[in-house]
């Protein structure tokens, strides 16, 4: 079965899978729109959860939530399944493809040979679409890729049944009931309000704006606390979380600004444009942090002052974002 599927590249895999699956059903929503409606933007810094020895930091919400929230807010019913064993997971996928249903599957980046080898870490929540089968090969639409590709059955099986944190357990999902007459406006409002609330009000100093301040505070202490070498690796990890494949640049801030620009037109609210420009600015500031950080870990010398300068940039980002999210939270949306 070589079914047809319209592949559109995206910055982030989960946005892309949702956007492309819906496009297949005749709904044309951009990647930023999915990201905004799904409240994809978030910040968490959980220093005591170490990932490859680095403090767990993320510029986005927990994997799977963009899909859940976006489809939910658009009133789209979807089917999601996980499996006890890999064979069953593959059989169910085959049955879907037989019926011509492009299917989202969760995979581990480590087992996807078509990706560049240097990026193949054990990240278990990479989403791709399987849209057909040709002999022993599956036809893949991986949103981060320029174009469609293929994968061997044995590789896909490993990728869908990788173990560890965020283990996919063969997870697959697809829309089953797509109403074409949904109203985008309430979905946009809920998306914005949810993000603003999460960034501002979670009473734990690891999440949202508070998490960004906490990160800045810790960055100042890193060289002293864990030594230069490790501090450099910590900074490198931050840069990767912020910039590597998937974020669209500036820790998702640019994608979010793009969403607000689109929303400004749909909602007929020019004030959203202004806030969007604010996010463009803060995204640029995050990239200045990345430049500063890379100078530090490139030299591998401990210029104590540099960590302070890097932390100062993070504080500036948090200050700016606090203002922006407060503006979003106080917006009066037309009833």
């Amino acid at each position: 079965m070589t079914n047809k599927f319209n592949h559109r590249q995206s910055a982030h895999c989960e946005n892309g899978v949702v956007s492309n699956l819906l496009y297949h059903e005749g709904i044309d929503l951009s990647e930023p729109m999915i990201f905004g409606i799904g409240s994809g933007l978030f910040f968490s810094y959980i220093p005591f959860v170490k990932l490859n020895g680095n403090p767990g930091t993320s510029f986005r919400i927990y994997p799977g939530y963009i899909y859940k929230r976006a489809t939910n807010r658009l009133g789209i019913k979807t089917k999601m399944r996980t499996f006890r064993n890999a064979e069953k997971a593959m059989d169910a996928l085959d049955a879907n493809l037989e019926k011509g249903i492009p299917t989202g599957v969760q995979t581990s980046v480590y087992y996807l040979p078509y990706l560049p080898s240097q990026y193949r870490f054990h990240f278990n929540a990479h989403n791709i679409v399987i849209y057909g089968k040709d002999g022993e090969e599956y036809l893949v639409s991986d949103p981060v890729m320029d174009d469609v590709t293929r994968i061997k059955r044995s590789d896909l099986m490993r990728a869908r049944y990788a173990k560890g944190v965020l283990a996919p357990s063969g997870k697959m999902y697809y829309p089953i009931n797509v109403a074409k007459d949904f109203d985008l406006k309430p979905a946009i409002i809920r998306g914005i309000q949810h993000t603003a609330k999460d960034m501002l009000t979670i009473p734990v100093p690891m999440f949202g704006i508070k998490g960004i301040y906490k990160l800045a505070k810790d960055v100042r202490k890193w060289p002293e606390k864990v030594g230069e070498r490790k501090a450099g690796l910590h900074l490198g990890n931050l840069v990767r979380m912020q910039e590597e494949i998937g974020t669209g640049g500036g820790g998702f801030r640019f994608i979010y600004a793009a969403f607000l620009k689109e929303a400004a037109v749909i909602m007929d609210m020019p004030e959203l444009n202004e806030i969007a420009d604010g996010f463009t600015k803060v995204g640029d500031r995050w990239r200045e942090f990345a430049i500063m950080a890379s100078k530090i870990f490139k030299q591998r010398t401990n210029v104590q002052g540099d960590y302070q300068l890097a932390a100062d940039i993070i504080v500036d980002c948090a200050d700016q974002e606090k203002v922006l999210f407060t503006k979003l939270r106080n917006l009066k949306f037309p009833a």
């Binding site: 240097q118 490198g236 990890n237 990767r240 590597e244 600004a257």
Partner: peptide, 22 residues
């Protein structure tokens, strides 16, 4: 100020962070 998608082959801070990890 409107947004467009642009493809890129990389950015030095990203490349350095990745090579440092390896």
């Amino acid at each position: 100020g409107s947004y467009v998608q642009v493809q890129t082959v990389g950015w030095e801070p990203e490349n350095l962070a990745l090579s440092q990890a390896w």
